[in-house]
């Protein structure tokens, strides 16, 4: 499983430095590292949204932007990605750390 990750560069906080190196297989491995065993369709909906907006703007979206953009409530986001959804999704989606306070 870890073979996919050997060629990938990460920064000291564990975020991928080049979002273009990202693949869906890498996301699966990174999710497991974040203690998310299987990525469901709901998980992917959020990852896809973050990839889309993140690549377009150059910044990973904040939790509030994810909630507004996907229509998935804050409660559900915390259930799908426990303990810090925005940061976790950004990591799994191969984006940088989300900036901004809300």
């Amino acid at each position: 499983m870890l073979a996919e990750l050997t060629a990938i560069a990460f920064n000291e906080e564990g975020f991928m430095t080049d979002p273009n190196e990202w693949t869906k297989e890498i996301a699966e491995v990174l999710a497991q590292q974040e203690a998310i065993e299987t990525l469901t369709a709901e998980h992917w909906k959020i990852i896809d949204f973050c990839r889309q907006t993140g690549l377009a703007s150059g910044n990973a979206p904040t939790l509030r932007q994810i909630s507004a953009g996907t229509g998935i409530s804050t409660k559900e986001l915390f259930a799908l990605y426990p303990k810090g959804p925005a940061k976790k999704v950004a990591k799994i989606a191969g984006l940088g750390k989300p900036e901004g306070c809300v």
Partner: peptide, 11 residues
Amino acid sequence: LIMGWAALGNG
């Protein structure tokens, strides 16, 4: 509110 939200975002 701001710090609490940041804390939740950091687990």
